[in-house]
Simulated assay, not measured.
Amino acid sequence: MNATLDLLLTRRSVPAQMLAAPGPSADELQTLLTIASRVPDHGKLAPWRFIVFEGEARVEAGRRLAEIVVERRPEISEARLDEERRRFSMAPLVIAVVGRAAEHVKIPVVEQIYSAGAVCLNLEIAAHAMGYAACWLTDWPAYDAEARAALGLAAGETIVGFIHIGTPTITPLDRPRPALEDIVSRFGD
């Protein structure tokens, strides 16, 4: 087997709270973003962009989300509020993949969304290839207009994924995968 196939067969997500420093260097981040942007993109629309959360910006992002939560739920426990504050601080690097899919004469919106999803997976695979681990998350901030605005998204933009990247503190276990005989059919059979 070759290294690429080995990499694809061994990639596992690691929970964000199990990702620690060190994270990717500035040069490695550039490489990650370059690799992430090399995805199928019918029409060359780049229907996605990146927001990088690193250093103190991770703390600020969590603070903004906690403000939204406490405004909506003043009775929230301090422990739960602290979880919101730490949402982007668990891993040393979080990259938001922002979808910018829009109606187009030739390119269906769904193809643009698929392209953004491929960006997320490329980030995960590239992080794994560099010796890091990653976790692709969404959760409520991805689906909440006020949270998206607080994180720097424009109207009409969506969160396709928050990719948390860092050094794994655990050896990830494989999870059960579907049996191929349950998910593969052949046309004409």
Rank of each mutant, 00 (worst) to 15 (best):
A16P: 10
G23W: 01
D189N: 08
A155H: 10
P108F: 07
I183P: 10
V119P: 03
A154R: 15
P108C: 07
T167G: 09
A116Y: 01
A96M: 15
A20V: 04
L32C: 08
S185H: 10
R87T: 00
S13Y: 00
Y114A: 14
V52D: 03
K106Y: 01
W48K: 01
M90I: 00
R38D: 13
P176W: 07
S89I: 02
D139W: 04
T4I: 15
H164D: 11
A179K: 12
H164L: 12
R58P: 05
E75N: 15
R73S: 13
P168M: 04
W140C: 05
A154P: 03
I183C: 12
R175P: 02
D174M: 09
S37Y: 12
R38K: 14
E124Q: 14
D41E: 10
I165C: 11
A101M: 02
H128K: 05
A127Y: 05
P108K: 02
E78Q: 14
R49N: 08
A142G: 15
H42I: 03
T169L: 08
S115D: 09
Q112F: 01
L137E: 11
R85N: 00
T158I: 07
S115E: 12
A133Q: 07
L19F: 12
I51A: 10
E60P: 04
A142W: 05
I95F: 06
S37V: 02
V160H: 06
A57F: 11
R64D: 00
R38H: 15
L9D: 09
A179Q: 14
F162K: 01
A16T: 14
V109P: 01
A147F: 08
I165F: 02
P40Q: 05
Q30F: 06
K106S: 06
S25P: 03
R186F: 12
S37F: 11
K106L: 07
Y143Q: 07
T171E: 15
V14I: 08
L173V: 10
L123R: 00
Y132T: 09
V59A: 15
L173I: 05
V39T: 11
P15A: 13
H164M: 13
I125P: 05
E71Y: 06
A61E: 00
R11W: 02
I125Y: 11
I107T: 15
F88A: 01
R177A: 11
Q112T: 07
D6Q: 08
A150C: 05
D182G: 08
G43T: 04
H128Q: 11
G117M: 03
I35R: 13
I163N: 08
E181H: 14
T34L: 14
G161V: 13
A96T: 15
H128P: 06
G55D: 00
A179W: 06
S13L: 00
S185L: 09
P40M: 04
A145T: 13
A96N: 13
G161A: 09
A133C: 11
G43A: 04
P141R: 06
R63E: 03
P168W: 01
V98W: 03
C135M: 09
A21W: 09
R80M: 12
A3L: 13
L151Q: 05
R80L: 13
T167V: 04
L29K: 12
R148A: 05
R85G: 00
E60Q: 15
I183H: 11
A61R: 03
I165Y: 03
M130R: 10
N2A: 01
I113Q: 05
